[in-house]
Design a protein around this nucleic acid. Structure first.
Lengths: 138, 138
DNA sequence: CAAAGTGTTCTAGTCAACTAAGACACTAGA
DNA sequence: TCTAGTGTCTTAGTTGACTAGAACACTTTG
């Protein structure tokens, strides 16, 4: 497991860590029994403070995804991704192809990002009732 | 132009505003001469403080995208999206189709999001030298 | 001119995120 | 048993995001 902390993104570091673990679980890169990098490991390599890492790990523990064993490490407790890895790989391949097409059409990363976000937002609106949960639409 | 402020996302409100204006420019929804919602408008509808909105608009102004005219409003100064609208629409349609497939395969929004992010991250790594710019890879 | 609507500034304060450095408690392995 | 590696806690402090409320400056319209 490798973390990427982007300090310029505006998103709090501990949330970036949480998100990345969750994503790794979604994608099947991590599964029950796997050990996360040690707190000191993350600290040493990213410069993030130990308390920040701890906060991320604690949040993951509270949501039941990991289990911290003092003296030994932090381990994945439950999985998240329920999708067949092969299906996942196929979808991934087709998405990668779409990205390639977009790039060939001259779009840069930000263009692609904007497009993706707008499509996902539209999809979310059409399929789920999320209004009210802290989301204001004006 | 409609803004969506998601207080639970962890991303500062003013950055959400900035991002949404930039995205609208990328997608061609906004162009030079268009007027952004007034500061008081955003305040009234979202509950965000005037200073927060102002901070977002100021950031957009600093990057040369909008122009604030005191007493009259804030207007788009320059465009961002350079891509042909038709090409954009085509790409959008194909992406929407991909999303539909993903949903049919049983993926939920978070699965899709994780997949998209990982593909985009891989793409970015392969095509651009972004190391060093505040991004730590561990 | 007057009024309404616009961006702008100010002061004061709260809260979350993060840093810093150290100490403690527990576990696994030599 | 000792030691290195682990998670955990404590205290103290800095910074940025945000809120609150008010006032000011300017433009447009009637």
């Amino acid at each position: 497991m490798e973390f990427r902390i982007d300090r310029s993104s505006g998103l709090p570091a501990y949330l970036q860590l949480v998100r990345q673990v969750r994503e790794a679980l979604r994608l099947g890169w991590l599964g029950p029994g796997d050990r996360l990098p040690t707190v000191r490991d993350v600290v040493a390599r990213s410069g993030v403070n130990a308390n920040t890492v701890l906060k991320a790990y604690r949040e993951l523990e509270l949501s039941g995804l990991v289990e911290a064993r003092q003296g030994s490490g932090t381990f994945i407790k439950a999985g998240l991704g329920s999708t067949d890895p092969e299906v996942m790989a196929a979808l991934r391949a087709r998405l990668a192809e779409w990205v390639r097409e977009a790039r060939e059409a001259g779009l840069d990363i930000e263009d692609i990002d904007a497009l993706v976000r707008s499509v996902l937002a539209a999809d979310e609106d059409g399929n789920q009732i999320t209004a009210g949960d802290g989301v204001a639409v004006l």
